[in-house]
Structure formats: C-alpha cells, structure tokens
C-alpha cells in the first residue's frame, strides 16, 4: 500500500511539480492550497505524511501546525515543514510549532523522500 501524502503548497507550479514527482515515486498525493484547507484535509484524509509550506495564505503553516497539534484528530500526524529559509528562525519556529521535520526550498527531492520515509517508519512503529 502506498503512503498517502498531503501536500500543502500555495504555489501552483510547485504543487503540480511535487504532486507529479511524488506520484511517480509511488506516493498517493492529496493537495491543499492554504492553511485552512490543510487542516480540513488533515482531518478528512488522515494522511501518513503532511508536507506543509510555512508561507501560506488564509492561515500560515505555523498556525496550521499548532492548531493541528491541538486537535486530537490530527495531533499525531507527521508533518514536514517546507520553508524558504535554510537557517535560523524559520526552522526553529517550525519545530516549535510542532513540525516533525523540516525541508528547505528549493526541495532536494531524494532528501525529501528520505525524510518522508523515515517519518513514516516512525509513525508506523509508534
């Protein structure tokens, strides 16, 4: 059974690209374009992994993550933050907000797959 990934990304080009790459890599992909939609899809689809962009319209990634952690239905989801900043505050903020891991844009795809798989393993064994 393939892993189910919820990709939360407001940039259309990136959403399209990542969705298709993940599909090709054998993942099932659900996509959302803003933080509010993301929370809704987290509850509805129970993804194995959430790829959550931090700069999102309506509700940003940090807020969405914090809220997800407070809702029992989504509190245990594996969330990987996607940010534009390699260092410093963004990373710390993402982890503080409750993200499990962190990937910097532009995404290194093989590295991202490793992170997804590693987290999914953890999720399964947990």
């Amino acid at each position: 059974m393939s892993l189910k990934v919820l990709l939360v990304e407001d940039n259309e080009m990136n959403r399209d690209m990542l969705t298709r790459r993940l599909n090709r890599a054998g993942y099932e992909v659900e996509a959302a374009g803003d933080g509010e939609q993301a929370l809704q899809k987290m509850r509805e689809t129970a993804p194995d992994i959430v790829l959550l962009d931090m700069n999102l319209p309506v509700k940003d990634g940090w807020t969405a993550c914090q809220e997800a952690r407070q809702d029992p239905a989504t509190a245990d989801l594996r969330i990987i933050a996607l940010t534009a900043h390699a260092m410093g505050e963004d990373r710390d903020r993402a982890l503080e907000a409750g993200c499990d891991d962190f990937a910097t844009k532009p995404i290194d795809f093989p590295e991202l797959l490793e992170k997804i798989n590693a987290l999914a393993e953890k999720g399964r064994s947990a």
């Binding site: 990136n14 790459r21 995404i107 795809f109």
Partner: peptide, 9 residues
C-alpha cells in the same frame, strides 16, 4: 525559492 524549487523539480 518557490520558483527555484519548481525549476529544480
């Protein structure tokens, strides 16, 4: 970074 990410992808 989004654009660069898309390009790379």
């Amino acid at each position: 970074m989004n654009v660069l990410g898309a390009m790379r992808g």
